[in-house]
Simulated assay, not measured.
Amino acid sequence: MNSGGYGIAFLGMGLMGQPMAARLCKAGYKLTVWNRSAEKAQPLKDVGAEVAIEPYLAIQGAEYIMLCLTNGDAVEEVIFGNGGLYGSLYAGQTIIDFSSISPHTTRAIAGQLLTERHVNWVDAPVSGGVKGAVSGTLVIMAGGEAEHINAARPVLSHLSQKVTYMGAVGAGQAAKLCNQLIVSTNMLAIAEAMALGRAQGVNVDSLPDAFAGGFADSVPLQIFGPRMACQQHEPILGAIDIMRKDVNTIEQALKDQDIAFPLLVAVKALYEKASVNGLGPADLSALMKLYI
């Protein structure tokens, strides 16, 4: 008997999805997984999950359908595309989307699925990186009906230290945009501070420890600061292009707002420069290469 008495489908075995799905499998849930590149699902098969060859086959008998996909296009393709979920969804299922996509796309998809398939939607983007996914200490910003989020809390507790209700569908994604504005800016500030320290003759290896507990401290500093100091970019804990995608999503969400966001403009320009310089697929620690 599985931990919750029902099945879970988990679609997307990337850097975050794979360890998240593994935690659910090890917690005893009956888990079926799918990934576009089938080899990435193999580690889940090794810990007891079933592997589906098409998205729609993964959701048979699943009360919860969890998505952890690259972007909004990927989410739409998995739901509405060839072999997608749409025709196999049934009333009462709940989709929990851990992907980071735009609030507008989230509301559009959720509205259509609720009207046409009577399927519930919870947007539940996460923060905490690969380390948090492995340890189950992610933080989740959840949008949707409070009753659906509360019902899912026992499952989500295996993945996160905290689930915060942010409001109606789309509010979780909007909160994630706020999160990513802070994180994307912080990553560049860390890289620039490391470059400043090096230029001034500081032993930059010591900076993260020196700042620990002070106002400049942060989780990204403690994870990526040492990697920047020694120019360690493997394994990839978060790709520059993924952060660039999130920065672009923030910009799109603000296009109709009559508010200036000068910091966002500067941050976007630097991530674009990193991508143009061939750093897009590299780890976020490679932002140091903008300065050396």
Rank of each mutant, 00 (worst) to 15 (best):
I96T: 00
I96D: 12
D97M: 12
F98M: 15
F98G: 12
S99K: 14
S99A: 12
S99R: 12
S100K: 06
I101C: 04
P103C: 13
P103Y: 08
H104R: 14
H104W: 11
T105L: 14
T105C: 11
T106S: 00
T106Y: 07
A108G: 08
A110I: 00
L113A: 03
L114Y: 04
H118K: 14
H118G: 06
H118R: 14
W121P: 04
W121V: 06
V122H: 11
A124M: 03
P125L: 11
G128W: 04
G128N: 10
G129L: 01
V130T: 05
G132M: 07
G132W: 14
G132Y: 15
G132K: 11
A133E: 02
V134F: 02
S135F: 10
S135W: 03
S135N: 09
V139K: 15
V139I: 12
M141D: 01
M141A: 04
A142Q: 03
G143K: 15
G143F: 14
G143V: 04
E145P: 02
E145C: 03
A146E: 15
H148E: 02
I149K: 00
N150I: 14
A151N: 00
A152E: 15
P154Y: 13
P154E: 08
P154Q: 03
P154H: 08
L156C: 09
S157F: 10
S157A: 15
H158G: 12
L159V: 14
T164M: 13
Y165D: 15
M166D: 08
G170Y: 07
G170S: 02
G170Q: 01
A171K: 03
G172H: 05
G172N: 08
Q173S: 15
A174D: 14
A174S: 15
A175K: 02
K176N: 05
L177A: 15
L177D: 15
C178M: 06
C178D: 03
L181P: 02
L181M: 11
I182R: 04
V183M: 12
V183Q: 11
S184R: 08
N186H: 09
N186M: 05
N186P: 11
L188S: 12
A189H: 06
I190L: 02
A191R: 10
E192H: 03
E192P: 03
E192G: 00
L196R: 09
G197Y: 05
R198L: 05
A199F: 01
G201E: 07
G201D: 06
N203L: 12
N203I: 02
V204N: 07
V204M: 05
V204C: 11
V204T: 13
S206C: 04
L207K: 04
P208Y: 03
P208L: 10
F211G: 13
A212N: 13
A212I: 01
G213A: 10
G214H: 13
F215E: 05
F215I: 07
A216N: 09
A216G: 12
A216F: 07
D217G: 09
S218P: 15
S218W: 06
S218R: 13
P220C: 09
P220F: 04
L221S: 11
Q222F: 09
Q222A: 04
I223C: 09
I223M: 06
R227S: 05
R227Q: 09
M228C: 06
M228F: 05
M228S: 08
A229C: 07
A229Y: 03
A229R: 14
Q231F: 05
P235D: 05
P235R: 01
P235H: 02
P235S: 10
I236G: 00
